[in-house]
């Protein structure tokens, strides 16, 4: 009675071990495939569909950059931000808000926006010292 139960116990233990090992192996392989494809074929950021990290006025953004460019970079650089301000200049595919924020669009702009108050979403790419402007790209109109 005792001997048979020991045998079955051993058998059960063996089975358990095999199932655990195969489960771990499966998990590792699937994780490997997931990471491989996740990294190699990583989707590009879609700024238009991302929720903004900050939603501020054009003036505030420039103030922050003028106060401390390094600190402002650490806060805003590469982030999706929403900027509100009056359109002071427009060209084919760019607009400038309050003479301080340069917005680059992917497509050519159709509707006239000059002098209108607008909210633009885009990715902050940094501060342009030549013209003392903050630049954002991949812009969309909100």
């Amino acid at each position: 009675m005792i001997i048979t139960s020991k045998k079955t116990k051993n058998k059960i233990m063996k089975r358990k071990k095999i199932t655990i090992v195969t489960a771990v192996l499966l998990l590792m392989v699937s994780a490997g495939i997931y990471f491989y494809y996740g990294i190699i074929f990583k989707e590009a950021r879609n700024i238009a569909s991302e929720a903004p990290d900050f939603s501020i006025t054009a003036k505030k953004l420039l103030e922050d950059y003028n106060a401390d460019p390094k600190k402002a970079d650490s806060v805003y650089l590469n982030k999706t931000i929403e900027i509100t301000g009056k359109v002071t200049k427009e060209t084919n595919s760019t607009i400038i808000l309050e003479n301080t924020v340069f917005c680059l669009f992917k497509e050519k702009l159709k509707n006239k926006m000059i002098n209108n108050k607008m909210t633009i979403k885009g990715k902050c790419i940094g501060y342009d010292e030549l013209f003392m402007e903050v630049k954002i790209d991949q812009c969309t109109v909100k």
Binding site: K42, D73, L77, N78, C124, I125, G126, Y127, L130, D137
Partner: peptide, 30 residues
């Protein structure tokens, strides 16, 4: 003056490597 983060690649991973590993655009944004 050109802002490094403003460079667009066709492949997203390449853009990430360019910014993070090669140009270190957080440290040298332009």
């Amino acid at each position: 003056l050109v802002l490094i983060k403003g460079f667009r690649f066709k492949v997203a991973l390449m853009e990430e490597h360019f910014n993070e590993n090669y140009m270190e655009s957080e440290k040298f944004p332009k």
